[in-house]
Amino acid sequence: MGVAINGAIEQGLLFAFLALGVYFTFRILNFPDMTADGSFALGGALAAKLIIGGWNPVTATLAAMVVGAAAGAFTGLLTTKGKINGLLAGILTMNALYSINLRIMEKANLPLLREDTFYTMIQSLHIPGIGVISGEAIIFLVIVLLVKLIMDWFLHTDLGLDIRATGDNSKMIRSFGANTDRTTIIGLALSNAMIAMSGAFIAQYQGFADVGMGIGMIVIGLASVIVGEVLFGSRSIFRASLAVIGGSIVYRLVIAVALRAGFNPSDLKIITALIVIIALTLPNVAKGIWKKSSKAAKGGKLDA
């Protein structure tokens, strides 16, 4: 179990970039961005291809981020300039990316055996771990927190305030001179850069990129966001982005426990869906029960 927890924490930290990206679109920009499945695999595919081609893993990961940002910007252009419904715009990009990812990889699966990856670089540093937290996890944590802090800072700049207001009240922010088309495109680009970064890291971590590696990533990201918010709160941006990282780790731990309990890896998608459904409905159900019990306490006389 110790090894499983170790791995779950490492994965949780690498998937936290995905969760931060999903948090950015779904919560900050209030945009249901379906690009994520495509941009995650895009990040993995491009990083793997470049590493095999002899690129430094760090520059390969950065390149994956840039291309992820372009994918997000494309969805943004479809929905703002092309006036395509936001959900559909994301789905269209996601679909198109599947073909693009296959073009990049030239086959469905790219193994990174004996390649120098970001992960092997960190492993070679032999950083001592602390308890269940491995030395590698410590490095991952540092990078995640760095990205989180940059995101927190960015969302408090003038441009960041505009992006947040675009998600909060787009009519209002237009009346103050912000171009909401521009803020939407920038927001989607930044979000998908983080998601592609997550894909690039995961490919290097697991030692291969697969064309199907992005399937279900939106739901996993959402699960992390929702679980994190429920468990750790979301009063401020600083708190919420920390909660999202925590949510990503908790999600991986739950999955590790589920696998331990005898579920098949193929069952993970339905487990993830159930986690999201429970986390979303539980507050309402709990409210209903509380209402009923308070009614009962008052003798059941109140109707409303």
Binding site: D158, L159, L161, F176, A178
Partner: peptide, 15 residues
């Protein structure tokens, strides 16, 4: 801060 930025180009400085 959003209202204050009216008429200015939005920069990457703390709002």
């Amino acid at each position: 801060a959003i209202a204050y930025a009216r008429g200015h180009r939005r920069k990457l400085a703390l709002g």
